[in-house]
């Protein structure tokens, strides 16, 4: 690993910095109690994802990765928050989220355990590749981002934070993806970006409908459909 780091020292260490910041944003989405702050963490995470794509695209030069970075910035940093603010404005600006399954210290400890697990889980995968040291950062951080997103999803009871959990999961997968699948066809990349906007749109519609029905967006209280206790 040390010999690898000498080959592209600056870009590799910058990318490691981006990876570290990416982890901090993932933790931020887990622990933050305000929807607005959670959204800001997500936007910052997406900027970091784009930054990693740019760094990896500089050397060896890859126009594909640079375009991926631009697509990311346009969809997740600009269009997605715009869409979300348009569709569920009230949710983002006036509500302070209080419903959370675990308290913040417990959440942090679980998140920490998940991160360590992700590192050890990805060790055998990393060993298959000896050429690119960038993978040593992006793959464990990506898996950790995925797991922390899933944890956010489980620990939250509100519609918009659950959406942020889903989006953080996909960000995690992409963070690993820019390193392990840098030459993905651009059609696939564009379709993925479109797909994320669709997801946000559909969840926005559902959130509005839930709000119309129950007067709030606490989706965790939706638990009528079960075996045995109907009606």
């Amino acid at each position: 690993m040390q010999t690898l780091q000498n080959t592209l020292p600056l870009i590799t260490s910058l990318n490691a910095l981006v990876g570290g910041l990416f982890m901090i944003t993932a933790f931020g989405i887990v622990v933050t109690r305000q929807i607005r702050a959670g959204l800001k963490f997500f936007i910052f995470q997406s900027i970091l994802l784009a930054a990693s794509a740019f760094l990896l695209g500089i050397k060896p030069f890859s126009i594909d990765l640079l375009i991926v970075g631009v697509i990311n910035l346009v969809t997740k940093v600009w269009l997605l928050p715009l869409l979300l603010r348009h569709m569920v404005k009230k949710e983002i600006y006036t509500r302070r989220e209080i419903t959370q399954v675990f308290n913040i210290p417990t959440s942090l400890i679980i998140a920490l355990v998940l991160t360590i697990l992700a590192y050890f889980f990805t060790l055998p995968w990393i060993e298959t590749q000896t050429v690119l040291s960038i993978i040593h950062v992006n793959v464990p951080v990506g898996l950790a981002g995925l797991l922390l997103g899933a944890f956010t999803l489980i620990a939250r009871r509100e519609a918009v934070p659950q959406l942020l959990g889903l989006l953080a999961m996909e960000n995690g997968a992409f963070f690993a993806g820019v390193a392990i699948a840098p030459d993905l066809p651009l059609i696939a990349e564009l379709a993925l970006a479109f797909d994320i906007l669709m997801l946000t749109f559909v969840i926005g519609i559902l959130t509005r409908t839930v709000n119309e029905h129950t007067g709030n967006t606490s989706v965790g209280s939706l638990a009528k459909l079960k075996e045995g206790v109907q009606k």
Partner: peptide
């Protein structure tokens, strides 16, 4: 009930899809 079903459906299957994406 239908909205609850739709919410569970999208959250669980999109979560699965993100895992499958990796």
């Amino acid at each position: 009930a239908a909205i609850e079903a739709a919410w569970k459906y999208i959250v669980l299957t999109i979560m699965g899809a993100a895992i499958a994406l990796l």
